[in-house]
Design a binder for these strands. Structure first.
Ligand SMILES: [Zn+2]
Ligand SMILES: [Zn+2]
Ligand SMILES: [Zn+2]
Ligand SMILES: [Zn+2]
Lengths: 133, 133
DNA sequence: TTTAAAATTGTTATAATATAACATTATGTA
DNA sequence: TACATAATGTTATATTATAACAATTTTAAA
């Protein structure tokens, strides 16, 4: 191929999948993504999971662990995802990334009773969103 | 049957599976549990998942979301699991439940920028445990 | 103590999520 | 160029979790 697809830092599949997640208003699951991108030539699970892995690794997206689903990062890629926090609505399933400097600072500096500090955390809050309350 | 199996509040399958998790030094996965309890007559995934669901619901165990695995609660059943925090070693996979009143208070009282409070949270810290450091 | 509801169990099948393994092509760099 | 690295394509399979339905046990009310 004579055309480079990398004006930015994402490969073709990564860009397709990132775009889909980025414009979605809700967390997307791997197989939902797979079905959505088949028309673009991405036909098999490993293609999706590889792109997801790389996007998570570079902080472009986050995995919502309690939902096995993915959202685009709405912060500054969360310093490569070392400090993530989300609010999750238990009624409509909406997920919002929380960007709260005080919270981030508190948790980043947290050390347990043995004085151990951690290099990464993920926090998920559950409740009702504004719409569902 | 003339013998009630409930001296406590757990059913037979729930007790078998709780005991296994409780005496394990590491998080257990559902199918690991399944293989371990087949000799006790628990033969199919739904039997395991039902017991796990109930044990999580009642706060006797917690699910470590990032590992799809389960640990026994080491606190006072975490007020039925409304406020859970764990430290997870990225090297040996060890998981410890964190019991820190200040942290719990801070997160239980946390409200986001819109003033929304949440009724539950789960926090996972990642790093190296004492042994692996 | 009958009786009906609720909880638990047993069972088979299948859905949903994720990775292994290997061949090929594209890209970045010396 | 030529080499290393990253990304892709493909098939098969492993892992995690639930649907659906029948039977039994437990609880609590009548
Ligand atoms: Zn982010
Ligand atoms: Zn909502
Ligand atoms: Zn607990
Ligand atoms: Zn360790």
């Amino acid at each position: 191929m004579d055309k480079m697809y990398k004006e930015n830092n994402l490969s073709k599949n990564q860009q397709i999948i990132f775009d889909l997640i980025d414009k979605s208003s809700e967390p997307l699951k791997a197989y939902t993504i797979l079905f959505s991108v088949q028309k673009k030539g991405i036909k098999a699970p490993p293609q999706v999971y590889r792109a997801l892995d790389k996007l998570v690794e570079t902080g472009k997206i986050h995995k919502i662990e309690s939902k096995n689903a993915f959202v685009a990062c709405r912060n500054s890629n969360c310093e490569i995802s070392k400090a993530t926090a989300f609010s999750i609505c238990e009624s409509c399933e909406m997920v919002d990334e929380i960007n709260d400097d005080k919270l981030t600072k508190y948790l980043t500096n947290f050390s347990d009773k043995k004085g151990t500090k951690y290099k990464r955390f993920n926090l998920e809050f559950f409740g009702l969103c504004k719409k569902c309350k």
